[in-house]
Design a protein around this nucleic acid. Structure first.
Lengths: 159, 159
DNA sequence: TCTAATTACTTTAGGTCTAAAGCAATTGCC
DNA sequence: GGCAATTGCTTTAGACCTAAAGTAATTAGA
């Protein structure tokens, strides 16, 4: 590992638990990828990553999602989803419709314009991510995917 | 994988590139661990994760760091470091001292109170992280660490 | 049928985070 | 020596994010 670069791992000491090492390296990798994607989205589409992520979830569910469902899929609070949805609605990229059976709920979905905008960004986004991981061998990428799956399972199983 | 839980991976489609799958799972794992640590820090020490992280870097470097160095290690902008350092300084946990040679620079370090506060949190923090990864076998954890190292290298090598 | 408890979403107050501009200081080059 | 370019940190404007409170609606149980 290039000792010259500074990131979260620089705070590690010699006797630190390997779990801590894994965590800080995971966090470092996430920050690196996220920073790259944010920069690309901003320079090419003038869009923020949270908005892109919200549109991505709705694109995958053309029938729309409830705000609470969206909040869970985005792993953020309901208040945050409200704020981002407000802006996308103002821009004509999403709509909120009253829920058929529950007047407390809305169904939020992408508009036609939103779908078109997202489709363009999605193609580039996939290229960028693929490019960032291009240096990994197929087996490495697959093994990483599996191990992250194991990690996710154990985290969710932890009380 | 438990298909019932909702997170970033729910936006994946069948034909999506494996790189995208790896990225969304990486992001999901990071969000899960981060959320757990934030909750523990908040309930036990009433401290935010960014402040804890900043103190962690300074704890590792008792001689202090420059603001710009801290910014790099924390992987955030200088403006963000300024804001968090301001608060920790107000609370008497860090000090800023003029740089010996460069009047544009400061050296920021933990105070004695800051070191004591951090030492307490650090012990618990390591327990929490170790607990979250406890479900992984030693070989799994080590393999994950290695693969994340490979990932980090390839990301940094990408233009 | 009525009401307390719970749920779904929004609002509030405040923290984190960014890009870019501002200001002071340093560096490099002519 | 002088000055333009660069650097280090802060400030500004605005986006994202949270916990908790507020409001309306639903549910469960007596």
């Amino acid at each position: 590992m290039d000792a010259d670069t500074l990131d979260h791992e620089t705070r590690l000491g010699e006797g630190d638990h390997e779990a801590l090492r894994v965590w800080l390296r995971l966090l470092t990798c996430t920050n690196l990828i996220e920073a790259a994607i944010r920069a690309d989205l901003r320079s090419e589409f003038d869009v923020t990553l949270p908005r892109f992520d919200l549109m991505a979830q709705l694109y995958r569910h053309p029938e729309g999602l409830k705000m609470g469902e969206l909040s869970q899929r985005l792993m953020v609070t309901g208040g945050n989803v409200t704020g981002i949805a407000d802006q996308l609605e103002t821009e004509g990229l999403v709509t909120r419709e009253a829920h058929a059976l529950d007047r407390r709920s809305f169904v939020i979905s992408l508009t036609a314009a939103g779908r078109r905008a997202f489709a363009k960004m999605a193609a580039r986004h996939e290229e960028w991510v693929a490019g960032l991981l291009h240096g990994l061998a197929d087996t490495e990428r697959h093994d990483l995917f599996k191990l992250l799956g194991r990690l996710k399972s154990t985290i969710k199983a932890t009380p």
